[in-house]
Design a protein around this nucleic acid. Sequence first.
DNA 1: TCTGGGGTCCTAGGACCC
DNA 2: TCTGGGGTCCTAGGACCC
Length: 415
Amino acid sequence: MIALVDCNNFYVSCERVFRPELEGKPVVVLSNNDGCIISRSNEAKKLGIKMGEPAFKMEKFLTENNVTCFSSNYALYGDMSQRVMDTLREEAPEIEVYSIDEAFLNLSGITDLYTFSENLRKKVIRNTGIPVSIGLGATKSLAKVANKEAKNSDGVFIIDNEHLCKAVLMNTPIGKVWGIGRRYQKKLLNYHIDNAFQFSQLNDNWVKKNMTVVGHRIQRELRGEPCISIEQAPPAKKVIATTRAFGNKLTNKDLIKEAVATYAVRCAEKLRKQHSAANLLTVFIHTDPFSTSEIVYHKSQTVILPIASNHNTILVKAAYKALDAIFYEGLRYKKAGVIVEAIVPDNNLQGNLFFDGDQSKLNKISVVNDSINSHYGRDTLRLAAQGTSKEWKLRQQKLSKAYTTKLNEIIEVKS
DNA sequence: TCTGGGGTCCTAGGACCC
DNA sequence: TCTGGGGTCCTAGGACCC
């Protein structure tokens, strides 16, 4: 059997661990730049607040209903996630961390699944304060379905016989099935397929033809045939991106250069973390896509690196070169991003006859750089190019503290 | 209807090879 | 004017996920 453990309203739950007085009250967490609502407590859901709703449109409603808002605090959520996953790892024989708030467990060999799951829930909440729901089924897709049921019951739901399976699938709207998005939902509804059971019974060839092998895999999984295995070690990323909307619209090229340099450094850090190097680097910039009065400008430029690299200075230089090619004076830019691709392992790099950069020296710099920053915090050691201005930084007016990752923001206990 | 960021996989079609 | 077959690599676009 496979279990899917999913943290309930994860970001909100993280905030509540450190603000217990908010238990039972409506709470939401906003996306970057305090843009839209991306996590809601059950009380907030009951008020009718929708996922992805722009916060500025809701401001009055949120105040009137005493909804507590938080800016997203990824340092906190990332650390809390790790604590949850560590707890799961202690109990489960095999685990795949699927996202920041979800993990698949392979529970083959465990006999009393219900007791196991109940105990697991209790242990996670005792260790971390985060409530989780656990769904079990013969395949990942069925565990997903079961998890939805668990959220509506007492936190654990097991699909362990055909009868129950059919009943649950008939009760699952087609659009709620893992892997069926907006497009496929619409298509299937046109054919009067509106629940998961009907989909599972469709003609295989029709599904293959209309929804590729991906759709067919989902169909077989819903029938109880495992097609998607548990991946214990996440494969290295093939694309790495750091992109942000600015806190304010920018016209000054120097400020945009600071932002782009910072994003390039972030990409370099992510590459080093997975022991990779990239051959291609792309920079894009664009103006506000929602503005009706301004020119819409969206442009990107890709540069080929002389040799695959993961060094801050090399990537920043490449990013500048790309930016120069696309920056157009006089526009008000809203967003920029750096994307690195053609990623290879960083040992045994292919050299370049015409490039005389001293790699061993750069490697040493990176090692020192990373060890200082991991001890003293991100950007303790940084490139001057990253600048010091605040204008392009995220808007985070309702940011909670980094309770678990910064010593000077640790929770205080009053005696 | 428009606010965030970061990813994956699959397919079709073009370019090219023998 | 039209006749053969088989294959690879790359990219853009479409679909999806959290």
